[in-house]
Amino acid sequence: MRIPILKLHDCLLISIQWELDDQTALQFQEDLLHKIHETSARGVVIDLTSIDFIDSFIAKVLGDVISMSKLMGAKVVITGIQPAVAITLIELGIRLEDVLTALDLEKGLEKLQRELED
């Protein structure tokens, strides 16, 4: 199953709605990078509101995709990380240091606009 990537002006929107298995995560990484290339998008918002856990593998894929997008000139904002997910990530020792975050999709888009204006 592939995760749909929506285009909105110069931004890409992704809402992950179900539990990520390894293949889906890797497929997503590839799809997103291609889409950035295709559309020359400058910003990406990934919404994780429906995700109730992230293990170190998924976290690595996410971290990688953020760094890769940056290399291709697109800023990524992650939105809707649940408290339980944030706590387990921190306890696992995964800090996702230079990642931009926002409470929800709406605030994520606002933040992205601000970042792109700077």
């Binding site: 990380i81 408290p83 921190i90």
Partner: peptide, 12 residues
Amino acid sequence: IQAADAVRLVGA
């Protein structure tokens, strides 16, 4: 520090 990190992850 951990609490601050977690707060950042949820978007605040």
